[in-house]
Design a protein around this nucleic acid. Structure first.
Lengths: 168, 168
DNA sequence: ACGACACGTATGTCATGTCATCTGTTGGTC
DNA sequence: GACCAACAGATGACATGACATACGTGTCGT
């Protein structure tokens, strides 16, 4: 079968991994969107609320650096809609007026609690599909793929708040 | 840690899986988009060309059923741009004029060969990141997640009927 | 003080994705 | 043959994502 190149089969495996990741991401996002629709927000918006809740007030850049759903360019418009819905407060740093100080409003905090419930429903669904398979090896494999990338690094930052950016 | 519910840690693991999948999909897509940009097409368009090449002429619905990048609703606009670029021929079934008969043009076939080269560059990059880790368990875990979903079924269909698409 | 530069944020543009709805075509029923 | 439900595809609307660029603000060198 592998008469073209000796590592052809490895390529095929990596390609299947790529398509599996694509399929799971799509479907997971669709399911989560359905869970969140009654709350009036999208999965990306939910991630912003979560990051803002877990990591104090943030500038727009710092927020982008902790988001997986956006490559840090600048989630201006993503934040815009949350501000318009009264879920996020957009403050301006009085010392350096270039910086924003983004934080949750009380409504944002309240909504985040309902978001967690919705996400847990998705996670239970996923857990059922996984039928108790051990995920350790899968997680560690995917981590080694993700960690090399900017958004993977974002995840690592969110995991290990003790590593660096405590002051945000 | 798990003072709220006994399977709280399982939830956390599933959640990390979800974010890892999101991160890898995003970054993989970004890298692939960069590889494909010189060819003038996007990752989604490349998937259409690939499916049309592997599975003869297709109707729009059948194409949607084999795509991972779109949930089968109807990739009309995705196909539109490929037709506009002369890569896909949009034929109309003469017997039942509701059906399309989508197939690659010679240019589409030629471009697909260059797409494979670009994709292989990405796969090599991913393979490097994986540093020779065995993927068997990861693949099978992800398959059990994906197979329950429509687009996972699409992947299975692509694997199944055309077990013999070795000629690439 | 002034001007070039760096930096954070905002905006324009394009291609997805997703859902809802519309249009055209066919087949079945009367 | 006329009506109508079912189906394939097209389109409108909205929110992302990604890239490039424009704008406002602070910093630094002179």
């Amino acid at each position: 079968m592998t008469y073209v190149s000796c590592n052809m089969s490895v390529m095929k495996v990596v390609e299947e991994l790529r398509y599996l990741v694509l399929a799971i991401q799509r479907e997971g996002n669709r399911l989560l969107a359905a869970e969140l629709r009654p709350l009036g927000i999208t999965p990306s918006q939910a991630e912003v609320l979560r990051v803002l809740r877990d990591h104090g007030p943030l500038t727009l850049n710092a927020l982008g650096g902790l988001l997986v759903c956006e490559t840090g360019n600048s989630p201006s418009r993503l934040v815009d809609r949350l501000v318009a819905q009264g879920l996020v407060k957009r403050g301006i740093d009085t010392i350096d007026r270039r910086y924003l100080a983004l934080s949750l409003t009380p409504q944002g905090r309240a909504l985040h609690r309902r978001i967690i419930t919705a996400e847990n429903r998705l996670h239970r669904t996923m857990d059922d599909r996984l039928a108790g398979q051990a995920l350790d090896e899968t997680i560690s494999t995917l981590r080694s793929l993700a960690d090399a990338f900017p958004t993977g690094a974002a995840l690592a930052r969110r995991r290990g708040p003790a590593l660096a950016h405590q002051e945000n």
